[in-house]
């Protein structure tokens, strides 16, 4: 799997990295227990500061998507992934609200919005993965 960053994007670099890692887990491109490059290695390969990579890794570790061991290094969560619990749903509602609002303001229909979201969801869990990792 490749990480592709845009340093001139409005989205902070660490967030681009974290988002792509989660998408990798969702699509199955990153398999359970798969080792990831060390902070130093990935920072050198991407040509970015290692604190940026560290921030992304730490954020995902907090959520439970990654495990960081002293010897093995960074690996994708080998056990069960974090669930879509109430805290997550709360965050999801909060993040989606402005997008829903703007869609309504711009006259997008309910069906169009639903279709768009579904197609994204399906695209991410594309057939080339080994059955996806979300419940």
């Amino acid at each position: 799997m490749f990480i592709e960053l845009d340093l001139q994007s409005e989205v902070p670099i660490y967030k681009q990295l974290a988002d792509q890692l989660i998408e990798g887990i969702a699509s199955g491109k990153l398999s359970s227990g798969q080792p990831l490059p060390s902070v130093r290695t990935l920072a050198a390969d991407l040509g970015i500061n290692l604190h940026t990579v560290n921030k992304a890794y730490q954020a995902l570790k907090q959520e439970g998507f990654l495990e960081i061991h002293r010897k093995q290094g960074v690996i994708v969560q080998p056990g069960s992934l974090p669930s879509a619990d109430e805290a997550f749903r709360e965050r999801l509602r909060r993040d989606l609200r402005p997008l829903a609002a703007e869609s309504a303001a711009r006259g997008m229909s309910e069906d169009e919005l639903q279709e768009l979201l579904l197609s994204l969801y399906r695209q991410i869990q594309n057939p080339s993965s080994q059955g996806g990792t979300s419940p």
Binding site: M1, F2, I3, E4, L5, D6, L7, Q8, G24, K29, L30, S31, Q34, P35, L36, P37, L42, D45, L46, G47, I48
Partner: peptide, 12 residues
């Protein structure tokens, strides 16, 4: 370039 790419895949 402001774009960057790196490989993190299974067989590093």
């Amino acid at each position: 370039s402001p774009k960057r790419a790196a490989y993190i895949g299974p067989d590093r």
